[in-house]
Design a protein around this nucleic acid. Structure first.
Lengths: 341, 341
DNA sequence: AACGTCCGCTAAACTGATTTAGCAGAGCAT
DNA sequence: ATGCTCTGCTAAATCAGTTTAGCGGACGTT
């Protein structure tokens, strides 16, 4: 790859100057006393030869590669997480950096291998990303340089970027209160494990807290709490069916994520109930499916692109060790309406 | 990153040998005459120091970086295409390579920039991937080394990896024929543009051909052909509604992709019709949503992981210039049944 | 005239590996 | 004793950049 590329020596020769001079000119070094003509000749020569510096050679001396490692447990392959990568890619490009990507697949040996492979390539920093927002243990090898956690926290208080799930909980609850729902708001997707274990999820607890705080501030409480063993459509379906067997029907349902909401829609459809006329539905994530449902699902969007961006910005531009919370904007779609009577 | 790593010189010193000796031992060079004791001492020293070679330094000399560029139009961020990356990542790891990822976002300037950034880093080869299976123009800069097209072909007949859409068409049609459907099979998702312009899609034409060939071989023809301006749920919904207004109802529907099928399910649900009791549905892609639908959607799966793998294998292990067609296995789910009388 | 200073530039060292060319000593034949 | 080959190893060049140290000449000062 890249045979017969012009080297700096070629440029210098063509410009009739030394490699030193050429290097300094091309790097725009201040305080050098090279003449304007010398500058011109170097630029002209570089242009003529289509010169591009060899990053390997440069990094050997400078120990900078303009390359960032993006290591994730499994994030690269999931529907959501493309956004994390895309944001990171974008921000990296703006700073003339590129991304080396690796996946650990949740396996410690893979992880070790992947991180070493990145360090061997002298990456300037590491972004360590998780698929589900959670706390995790950072492998020690990574500590040899700058790190930012993405969608995760660690006991060591490394800089990290997280979605602001608690505020999203408030947003979602407020959206319902504003429409006039109050005493018949149900919640689908309670889950002891997710709420308790930070290593499993940070989102569940935060979303729940945001919802509950907002409701109690308005003098309301949840009308019903449905627990689900996981957050998949089938669980949302079962949960909604359960809710519909009760004597009083909820006027609105908050689902802990869009997949649950999808299941809930299915159950409502089968029961012949309409969203939002009979029941309003609101949710979290903004999975692509939220736009495909009929009517569109109102949901607090996981700002994956923004998060990916911020991670790179913090890594490269420096920034707080404080966790960075990225807001989750509410996508207002037609699944919310005022309750009927 | 990676401060105070041991260098080859450190290893050599500790082993009491020259850098040359250490290098040869660690690279397992044949035909060298270094003693068994020398081997031992070098290995011991490397182990003790935790030596790992500096890839930049090595590649400066050898012009190999064990790094592959994965350049895509927009593939990295879409729900599907994670599989392409994951497969490539896996195959690369097996061969001790890593992936540099870039996205062109369909913009020629970005593309130019991205490819140059990769070439500057002396990648050993390039995988050029497209989101939608299609023909595309490969930027000239890329030709300076090995390339494999992924999910795409080019006029230059570069080696490429494609899903076998035509065979998938046959598979899908056969699945319906086998159940006893014959004269009332409808197709949703005909699209002149996609079928005609290879730069837009290669899948549409191939799938259609597979379906039609199989049906006519069985002495059948399509009962109805519904055209759609795009392959999104809303189009599938409208198409199915249209079909249901006809005097005779189809016994089975083939959708050109799962999103259309999702829309079709929605229309069926509203019409109070059940899948597969009233109508069988079968489709292409195996989008995650196919498993979430009730009942699960039978569909010919885009083998993204396999495709990603194959691309790396062809790039690194060498292989045919012939297009590689990767089979699309049918995921048998409950959306297909025998027609009711 | 001698000295110092600034200007414009360059030689050479350095980064960490691989690779080429070749050296010293042992053993053997003549 | 001389020459030859083989063994086991090393010095030095090389890759393509960056960076340090410093050189020769013009100019101004005393």
């Amino acid at each position: 790859m890249g045979r017969n590329r012009a080297t700096l020596a070629d440029v210098a020769r063509l410009a009739g100057l030394s490699k030193t001079a050429a290097s300094m000119v091309l790097n725009g070094r201040e305080g050098t006393r090279l003449s304007p003509e010398a500058h011109q000749r170097v630029f002209a020569a570089a242009e003529e030869l289509g010169y591009r510096p060899n990053v390997a050679a440069r990094s050997l001396r400078t120990r900078k590669t303009a390359t960032i490692a993006f290591v994730s447990d499994i994030v690269a392959t999931t529907r959501f997480a493309g956004g994390l990568i895309r944001g990171a890619l974008d921000a990296a490009r703006e700073r003339d950096h590129v991304l080396l990507i690796a996946e650990t697949q949740g396996d410690a040996a893979f992880e070790q291998y992947a991180i070493e492979a990145m360090l061997d390539r002298q990456v300037d920093g590491v972004i360590y990303a998780a698929m589900a927002t959670r706390r995790l243990a950072v492998p020690p090898a990574i500590h040899s340089g700058p790190v930012v956690l993405l969608n995760a926290t660690s006991p060591e208080n490394l800089p990290c970027v997280l979605p602001d799930d608690e505020r999203a909980g408030r947003t979602v609850a407020t959206a319902l209160l504003d429409k006039g729902h109050r005493d018949r708001i149900a919640l689908i997707g309670r889950n002891r494990l997710k709420e308790r274990e930070a290593e499993v999820s940070l989102a569940a607890q935060a979303r729940l807290r945001g919802i509950q705080d907002t409701l109690s501030a308005a003098g309301a409480t949840l009308f019903a709490d449905v627990f689900c063993s996981d957050w998949l459509p089938e669980h949302g379906y079962a949960a909604m069916r359960g809710l519909l067997t009760r004597p009083t029907r909820p006027s609105a349902v908050i689902c802990m994520n869009d997949r649950l909401a999808f299941g809930a829609y299915q159950a409502l459809g089968e029961a012949g109930l309409a969203v939002p006329t009979d029941i309003s539905v609101v949710s979290f994530d903004d999975d692509p499916i939220a736009t495909w449902l009929r009517p569109g699902l109102a949901t607090a969007a996981l700002p994956h692109e923004q998060m990916g961006r911020r991670a790179v910005e913090i890594l490269l531009d420096g920034g707080t060790t404080e966790p960075t919370l990225v807001p989750m904007p509410l996508r207002r779609r037609r699944s919310i309406a005022a309750p009927v009577a």
